[in-house]
Design a protein around this nucleic acid. Sequence first.
DNA 1: ACAAAAGTGTTGAATCTACACCCATGC
DNA 2: GCATGGGTGTAGATTCAACACTTTTGT
Lengths: 247, 247
Amino acid sequence: MSSARRAHAAVKVTVDLAILTVREGRLQVLLIERGNEPFRGRAALPGGFLRDGEDLDAAARRELREETGLDGSALHLAQLGAFGAPGRDPRGRVVTIAYLAIAPHLPVPVPGSDASGARWEPVEASLADPDRLAFDHGDILRTAVDRARRELEYTTLATVFCGETFTMGELREIYEVVWGVPLDPRNFSRKVKKTEGFVIPSGEQRVQETGRPATLYRRGPATTLYPPMLRGADQGGEPVGAVSPAR
Amino acid sequence: MSSARRAHAAVKVTVDLAILTVREGRLQVLLIERGNEPFRGRAALPGGFLRDGEDLDAAARRELREETGLDGSALHLAQLGAFGAPGRDPRGRVVTIAYLAIAPHLPVPVPGSDASGARWEPVEASLADPDRLAFDHGDILRTAVDRARRELEYTTLATVFCGETFTMGELREIYEVVWGVPLDPRNFSRKVKKTEGFVIPSGEQRVQETGRPATLYRRGPATTLYPPMLRGADQGGEPVGAVSPAR
DNA sequence: ACAAAAGTGTTGAATCTACACCCATGC
DNA sequence: GCATGGGTGTAGATTCAACACTTTTGT
């Protein structure tokens, strides 16, 4: 217990974004290099302070646009939760609202970026060293990846990793990369097609470098998957965000 | 777009709790009657301001204790997310971090309560009128109930609704009440027992008012359920907290 | 022809659902 | 005995996992 105990702590609120994509066969996250103190020169998730009169979701979309040039209305954007440990920001008491954004396989590093250097990096690299990212961004990223993995099971989230149209193989690659397990192409295809509203055939085909041309699909109207896509047992992890032992 | 647009909005942070239990065959939420403005006399979720140097989770546990007399370490407590729409609190800019707490079937209203009147109320009643609860607490409660329903499927959350020991019938009642669907007692029992680590027999029995005595169980070590408990198709709802159309 | 990727069919194992049936208690 | 809830057995439908096999392209 610290001694300071005035009620109504003076708090600043930031919004931070874990923007994930699948590139080069790996799950990658968009990082910026911090141009200012604290943590100057360190890699960090893009984000910034909440403005007066601004909604949280709007702030997330604005930061997305300012720092990456991406259009928030086209991306999946969902709140992950609040991170507010007292010592997480050396400037003072700062609570951040973390967001998970999913980007389709994008051109490259990112156009119109505000920050010194924005780049994609494989999440394993970012998570390998707990102090690789500024603040508690390692924790946030871990939460984001967990969430993305989980949501692939029960929702159609995987389709937003893909472009406007995509092949069954591309969609399957999303699952394989995010989950880190190989899936049977035959059974995968069958299951996706059988799940009502998951994907709809666009009527066109795409010629591959090799092999038979693949049917192109686009997102269907469904958001939740029933039955869910399975990735086998275990997976561990707390029930989503449990705080107390509760056991 | 509002005109005020200084960066670094001055914000206060509160913590609000949606405390759920199953009582009298219904899913109920703990409400207090507000003793101060704004919304004086209106029903609201318990909560209060974050203090200096205090962790978010610690604040949630403190409010739980202060306002309800419950011991946070014994309850399931998990963050739901942040709610921060600009107009949600007439006192100014207040972002709240909402928590979901699950309480076992408790004695009654609640001992040692701080607030004028704390009471349990069926969630349908609280949600029937969008303005029944103060602030945006209706939204928060809806999110909490959705989350609880979802977590019953994939986690052992149901056991924390029960006391230290419980019968299969009591555990089943949790599912039936929270989901609002009847379940087959025979299949339910079999499935729970087959899921490793969900429950463990305590070796004792409880004599009922009527019928054969029931075996008493206590929580097992598992936190996630595989395979999950199923409640049939649909359910609808956005993919958990999607913000943008993303479609 | 051959490699490579897209797809279809099939089969055995596991699971879900529904329900018949037995067990143990209070009245 | 009989009502009531706890609990086991079992059969048919559905789903899953694994893999043989066919289709369609580029080289």
